[in-house]
């Protein structure tokens, strides 16, 4: 019944908040988050200077649609992008910058589970494609970095969010919900192939 009683996570994400989370729990995240995707991860991994302090912060894997209107930024769409692509970069970034929360979507395996365990970090899974529901939870655009260098999609956006919904996919103990689903679906497939009737052309 984790769904019925969501846990609230509020920035800065302290050790206490994050350690109490368990895979499968439903959470609502509020406060500051930093978006980043492929170019930012490669840049930080290679030792690039970070213009913001990521300590006790969250990286949100997202390339938002943002337009300039009346001299301010307006988020038109802001769902998660696939986190799997950043798995190789993340352990070093999490360790060096003290990141506590990664928000995104898609499978992450042993590398990320191990990194979450050793860095005291969680991986939160948002609903892929839910660009409008999630854009509505962005209450303010604080700043943008690397807009020119990486383009607006790949830029680092400082977003203030409120009650952003997600599910704990990897917790601080390194337990991995997606891996568990993957393993049980592979067993179910094997069973279907062993016992199922063969297709006749």
């Amino acid at each position: 019944m984790a769904i019925l009683s969501p846990r609230r996570l509020i920035y800065p994400f302290t050790v206490e908040q994050v350690y109490s989370l368990r895979t499968g729990q439903f959470v609502l995240v509020s406060g500051l988050v930093f978006t980043g995707r492929d170019r930012l991860h490669k840049y930080l991994y290679e030792g690039g200077a970070c213009p913001v302090n990521l300590r006790e912060g969250a990286i949100y894997h997202c390339g938002p649609v943002v337009i300039r209107e009346d001299n301010s930024w307006k988020v038109r769409a802001a769902g998660p992008t696939t986190s799997t692509r950043e798995e190789a970069y993340l352990p070093r970034i999490m360790q060096e910058h003290g990141v506590r929360v990664v928000i995104g979507k898609g499978s992450m395996g042993r590398v990320m589970a191990k990194a979450c365990h050793s860095a005291g970090c969680v991986y939160l899974h948002a609903v892929g494609g839910a660009a409008q529901v999630l854009a509505d939870r962005v209450v303010a655009v604080k700043a943008v970095h690397f807009g020119e260098q990486f383009g607006l999609t790949e830029a680092l956006w400082e977003l203030e969010i409120k009650d952003f919904p997600a599910v704990v996919a990897i917790d601080c103990r390194g337990r991995n919900l997606l891996q568990r689903v993957m393993n049980s679906s592979a067993r179910a497939r094997d069973k279907l192939l062993e016992s199922g009737e063969k297709v006749v052309s």
């Binding site: 997202c62 390339g63 938002p64 649609v65 038109r76 769409a77 802001a78 769902g79 992008t81 609903v127 494609g129 839910a130 660009a131 409008q132 529901v133 854009a135 509505d136």
Partner: peptide, 15 residues
């Protein structure tokens, strides 16, 4: 999300 996108005349998905 589908309803919101339609009502707000905004992209269903950012991608």
């Amino acid at each position: 999300n589908i309803r919101k996108a339609r009502n707000q005349d905004a992209p269903i998905c950012q991608d």
